[in-house]
Design a binder for these strands. Structure first.
Lengths: 239, 239
DNA sequence: CGCTTTATTGACCCGAATCAAGTAGAGTGG
DNA sequence: CCACTCTACTTGATTCGGGTCAATAAAGCG
């Protein structure tokens, strides 16, 4: 399988062979993480960042009241906490939603890279900016879409993102996320999330049982979820 | 008045005189923007970014259904669309909430700067990462805080951010944002926003009439808003 | 000083949380 | 291999938060 971070970046800009090999070398320190384990802890001060190579992870934020909000889902190829390099202290955590493989990169190495390979540095910058765009989209989804539309929007987003790195094809993909987590992703109760899921299924645009998601009618699904892929920043462009 | 972007960056890392003068020169192309005018349009492909030097602006996202969501408020010193440099097409717009002064910077100039002044480049990267942290906080606020807490959280955030650049002192500041905009910031109806505002006022932690915000009890306000300033990334650290 | 925009209030109703069970799988150990 | 347990999912009943509609008051502003 090709390196998912390289696949991700090449989709958006061209990489020289030198740059590709820098990335390969940079991601050799791999580690396996068990399902539901924290990968980065809220409140910590990390000295390295990591790239997700396999599995599903999500960012979670614990509030003082004990409530939890999940602000992003990550798939192979995503940097999980590159933000952490430029922030002092983690305002949120990252947790494995399935068994995962990550590659750790010390911050110093990334800073050096931004000096020696500025173009690659800008591409890493771009990954954080694209990530921010996903978070902005999450604000609109949480704040303004009716619950079944939230689920539809998420299915559309993940289908496109997973397709990019070869994890989705023929209108279907695997998504190891429980309804409990989905509820915390949209600010809903689990009961209501479950009912919204049933409403969405009843449209016949999609089937979503357990971790198997199959899209039957893309057009209808994007209409329900008011989905506009602009924010995924899928267009190639020199940066 | 000192340059707000320089103030903002110096708060988080030290700047050389050379870097300061690069920033000064970079922001000389200033423009005045009238209240409620779009500064950057959703769907456009900008070739320059801008820094807000005076006034209040916000990011807004228009959904297909016609609903609007505001995902961030910007004050003097904030880059308004540095993201736009690394994204192909704007997934959201930026609009002036008051009369504003902005400084335009062509993208080419920022890219050049990332090659000639990598440290400054990383600080600009940091501004986008801090901005992303604000957006993540917004997800939690919108998704999990009760309405009066949303307002309290926002008052805490803006008091600290405005203090940084000298726009707030003695527990009070001016905030030219209508209740209509506040409602779109939290995904509420204007009616309910108004009622939540009254509930918050009734706690006596704050008074908030029109654009004048006065904080009477910081501790109480942060408790109501479950406010944790970590995400504001206020700690100095070499980057 | 009229006119438009913003803030406020009341009545009504629906959507979503909460509480409380119950069901179905997936592992686990005897 | 089956009972046991744990977790995830599903359902029903009830309560309450928040939206919508409609009208009025109060500011700004030209």
């Amino acid at each position: 399988m090709p390196h998912p971070l390289i696949t991700y970046l090449q989709r958006r800009d061209s990489l020289s062979d030198e740059e590709k090999s820098v990335l390969e070398r940079m991601t050799h320190r791999q580690e396996t993480i068990a399902v539901r384990t924290p990968i980065v802890r809220q409140g910590s001060r990390p000295t390295q960042s990591c790239v997700l190579l396999q599995g599903i992870a999500f960012r979670e934020h614990l509030l003082r009241s004990g409530k939890r909000m999940i602000s992003a889902v990550h798939i192979a190829g995503d940097f999980l906490d590159l933000n952490g390099m430029l922030l002092a202290k983690m305002d949120h955590g990252v947790r494995a939603a399935s068994n995962c493989i990550v590659a750790w990169i010390p911050h110093g190495e990334i800073i050096r890279l931004s000096e020696t390979h500025p173009h690659l540095g800008r591409l890493l910058w771009m990954t954080t900016v694209t990530d921010a765009a996903l978070t902005r989209a999450a604000v609109s989804v949480v704040g303004r879409l009716p619950p079944p539309a939230k689920l539809a929007h998420m299915a559309c987003e993940l289908y496109l993102r997973m397709s990019e790195v070869g994890l989705a094809k023929n209108w279907s993909f695997d998504l190891a996320i429980t309804q409990l987590d989905l509820a915390d992703m949209f600010g809903l109760s689990t009961v209501h999330l479950n009912r919204s899921m049933q409403t969405l299924r009843a449209t016949n645009a999609i089937s979503w049982d357990g971790s198997r998601v199959v899209i039957h009618d893309w057009r209808k699904l994007t209409d329900i979820g008011e989905f506009d892929p602009t924010y995924l920043n899928l267009e190639p462009k020199p940066r």
